[in-house]
Each structure stands twice: as structure tokens, then as C-alpha cells.
């Protein structure tokens, strides 16, 4: 039983930095400035149309970003997975290296590209075109999400695709499947777990981001992350901010649960 001792530091960590803070947030979310009574007022405030609108916008933009990531990421994962192992590692590295750079820096870089006096508009004007309004709108925010979170979609799919037993593909061909059928009936269904974890990994940071929307949305595209940030840093209403955080957490949990459920059902049912 000696080995249990090794778990103690982690258990300590778990209590000190995960469970207690979580409990505090939960506690704040049901408290208020004015009274010492527990209250659900903070949660009720969320249902104000202003916040609902922000919430729907967050989910909407994140879903769009996730979908775009999937549409771009799957082919990329597929192409890398089909390369020779040596080349594969090089391309994986190409995807990883930008992630080592600071997230804010990467997003600032997009600002200098999209700004009214940015690279694209400068070029457009040089060639006599009208300059375009590329930044501070929801498209720019989605672009930022896709750019920042695309690797989270590519890698789960890639890691599943490289592991697919090549014998299965030969078996499918042997049974009369042409390339398209092999993909539709074997490769894609087998890669679904990767697609789902990719979707979760992309959607979660996207839906709770506040930096991308602040920098590329320029205050015009407020997401739920921005509202939470404001509650804590600007308005100093930790109670409402905590309630919003708990709501987001609950929402993400439900989202993940539903996706997992879909995956399980898919395993049980046949794809035909």
C-alpha cells in the first residue's frame, strides 16, 4: 500500500487548486453583495435577453468555427496520415510550431493583417481597389478561432487515421469496395472518435474565448467570455461572473455528454 503515498501530492493539488476554487466559484454564484442569504438571482440575471443574445452568439460563432476547422482539418489530417513516416513528422511539426508561439502574439499578428491600415488593405489600395472592412466583425472572430484552434482538430483526427489497420483497407478492397467506398464505409466511420474529440477540443476553447473576440472583434463582437471577464475585472461583480462561469461549465459538460452519446450510439448501430 506504500504506493498510495505517491498520490498524496496530487490529491493535495486537487483540493487546493481545483476543488476548493470550484467550490468558491459555486459559492460566489449563489451569493450576493447585499445579503448573506444564498440566492439564485445571479442565475436569473443570465436570462436577460442581452446575455442570452451574447450566449447564443458565442455558441453560434464557435460552432461555425468548429465546422470550418473540421472541413479544413480532416483533409489535412488525411493528407499527413498518408505520407511516409519521415515526411509526416515534418508536417506535424509545421502544425505544432506556431502553437509554441504566444497565443496573443498570433492573434495580434492577424490584427496587423486585417486592420484598415493593415497588410491586405494597404495592398488593395496600392492596386487601386477599395479598402475592405476586414476586422472588428464576427467573421474576423471566427477566423481567429479557426486559426488558433485548427491544430486541436487536426491532431485527434490524424492520430486516429494513422492508427487505422491497413489490412482493413485491403479487406474492404478485396470485398469489392472502390476508393470512395473504402473511405465512406471504413475509414470515415473508424475516424469518427477523432472527429468528435477534435470537435470538443475546438469548440471548448472557442466558446469561452475572450481574447480573440476582444482583439479581432474590437468590442463589437462580445462573447460570453468577455462578459465574464468584465464582471470580474471591470464591474467587480464576482457573483454574477461566477454564475456565468458555472453556466458555461454546465453547458460544455452537456455538449460533451451529447457528443459522447452520439459516438456510443454510432458504435452500436451500423453505419449503413
Amino acid at each position: 500500500m506504500k504506493k498510495n503515498y505517491l498520490a498524496y501530492p496530487y490529491i493535495l493539488w486537487l483540493f487546493a487548486f481545483i476543488l476548493i476554487p470550484l467550490f468558491l466559484v459555486l459559492f460566489y454564484s449563489v451569493s450576493s453583495k447585499d445579503s448573506s442569504m444564498l440566492t439564485l438571482d445571479n442565475y436569473k440575471r443570465f436570462f436577460d435577453p442581452i446575455y442570452i443574445q451574447v450566449f447564443v452568439r458565442s455558441v453560434n460563432l464557435s460552432l461555425i468555427a468548429t465546422l470550418i476547422c473540421l472541413v479544413i482539418g480532416y483533409p489535412v489530417a488525411w493528407i499527413i496520415a498518408n505520407m511516409e513516416p519521415a515526411k509526416r513528422n515534418f508536417w506535424v511539426l509545421l502544425f505544432v510550431v506556431p502553437m509554441w508561439m504566444n497565443f496573443l502574439l498570433r492573434t495580434y499578428a492577424w490584427m496587423t493583417i486585417l486592420e484598415n491600415t493593415g497588410i491586405i488593405n494597404t495592398l488593395l489600395e496600392k492596386f487601386g481597389f477599395q479598402s475592405l472592412n476586414l476586422i472588428y466583425n464576427s467573421q474576423a472572430v471566427v477566423l481567429g478561432m479557426v486559426y488558433n484552434f485548427l491544430p486541436f482538430m487536426v491532431f485527434p483526427i490524424y492520430s486516429i487515421l494513422v492508427k487505422i489497420d491497413k489490412n482493413l483497407l485491403e479487406a474492404a478492397q478485396d470485398l469489392g469496395a472502390d476508393k470512395k467506398s473504402v473511405f465512406m464505409k471504413v475509414i470515415f466511420p473508424l475516424s469518427l472518435p477523432g472527429v468528435l474529440s477534435g470537435a470538443i477540443m475546438t469548440f471548448m476553447p472557442a466558446v469561452s474565448t475572450f481574447a480573440i473576440s476582444r482583439l479581432l472583434g474590437g468590442g463589437k463582437v462580445t462573447l460570453i467570455g468577455n462578459v465574464i471577464e468584465q464582471q470580474f475585472l471591470l464591474v467587480n461583480d464576482w457573483y454574477f461572473g461566477s454564475a456565468l462561469s458555472i453556466i458555461m461549465m454546465g453547458f460544455i459538460l452537456i455538449f460533451v455528454y451529447i457528443l459522447r452519446k452520439v459516438e456510443k450510439d454510432d458504435e452500436e448501430r451500423s453505419i449503413f
Partner: peptide, 24 residues
Amino acid sequence: PPHKRKLNTVFQSYALFPHLDVGE
């Protein structure tokens, strides 16, 4: 190509599709 040949193979590793049941 293999999918047009009138023969079938039983693979050493069986190569059964893990996402499909026996019938499928």
C-alpha cells in the same frame, strides 16, 4: 485492381471491421 477481381481473401490478421457487427 483488387476490387474488380473475382476472388476473396481471408487475411492472416482476419482484418474484420471493428465498427461493424458480425452480420454487417
